[in-house]
């Protein structure tokens, strides 16, 4: 081997190592966060942590004074999160899919282009602004904070993600699929419903899961809308709690600070599970 070839191979190796190093570095923040939260939070996780509501500051104080772990948990937050998320999904998924289907089919129309552009803007709108707007639109007319208001805010935040993923997935389907359906004499609505949307299901489902994992950790919009509540509540017209709201409340209450890490760990694991699940499903459907 001559010197030049050796030199070139050496440069190649340096490059490769460099790339591996920086690729590895990007994983460090996530692993560090996960490690920190796991380390601090794992001993708080217990059955009662998931089944009992937040303790009062007085109870927590007493437990701390007696050297016992703080009683109670985040059940009120979990239930509130699930209720608001559920209501948001029920509205955002069908509306988002229909809107995405419209945008994918009519990408040359002026109206569709405007809607598409607005969707981008909505996606970039800071969540705190969505919170304050929902406060004006829902909380003020309803004369009170409620799970409904919280779910409206979450719904608005989910919509652009679902619209975008539906539109993108439909656009990459082969045109022959749609033409084959139309060639059988069907109208385009039926072809969309029976051929295109089922074929795009994997991508759309992934989009919905990602939308959920994006809004599940939102705190700011819920401060203006759901407010929070230390009781387990099932009604949708009253203030309600959510896991990210609880983390904020624990942080602000010196007596409850020990609960922060358990709640954070739960939220983090929930979001990671959704992400892994969506990756797995996307892979499975693409086969």
């Amino acid at each position: 081997m001559n010197v030049k070839t050796k030199n070139r191979l050496f440069k190649d190796k340096v490059m490769l190592w460099g790339i591996c190093l920086f690729a590895g570095l990007t994983a460090v923040p996530l692993l560090a966060i996960l490690g920190e939260v796991l380390l601090r939070g794992y001993d708080q996780l217990s059955w009662s942590f998931f089944t009992e509501p937040t303790p009062t500051a007085y109870k927590a104080m007493k437990a701390i004074a007696a050297g016992e772990p703080i009683p109670g948990g985040i059940a009120n937050g979990i239930i509130g999160t699930l209720i608001m998320l559920g209501m948001a999904i029920v509205v955002a998924v069908p509306v988002g899919i229909l809107c995405g289907a419209y945008l994918a089919e009519n990408s040359k129309r002026r109206f569709a282009q405007v809607v598409s552009y607005l969707t981008d803007l909505l996606q970039g709108t800071p969540s705190v602004i969505i919170g304050i707007i929902t406060y004006i639109w829902v909380v003020v007319p309803m004369k009170g904070y409620s799970a409904i208001a919280g779910s409206v805010a979450l719904c608005i935040m989910m919509l652009p993600l679902i619209i975008r993923s539906t539109e993108e997935t439909l656009k990459i389907l082969p045109a022959s699929l749609k033409e084959a359906g139309l060639a059988l004499g069907a109208n385009s609505a039926r072809v969309m419903l029976k051929v295109q949307l089922p074929a795009a299901f994997g991508g759309i489902f992934t989009g919905v899961l990602l939308a959920i994992s994006r809004v599940i950790g939102e705190t700011a919009p819920l401060m203006f809308t759901a407010l929070g509540c230390s009781l387990i509540r099932w009604s949708i017209d009253k203030p309600i709690s959510a896991v990210p709201l609880l983390i904020w409340e624990f942080f602000n209450d010196p007596n409850l600070q020990d609960l922060i890490w358990g709640a954070s760990l739960f939220l983090l694991l929930f979001v990671l599970t959704l992400n892994v699940l969506s990756k797995y499903l996307a892979k499975k459907w693409n086969q």
Binding site: S176, G181, A183, G185, A199, F201
Partner: peptide, 18 residues
Amino acid sequence: DVRRRVGMVFQRPAPFPT
């Protein structure tokens, strides 16, 4: 109406995947 009476087969086989 026309397409119910005139069938079409495309270049690439396109069975509905789902």
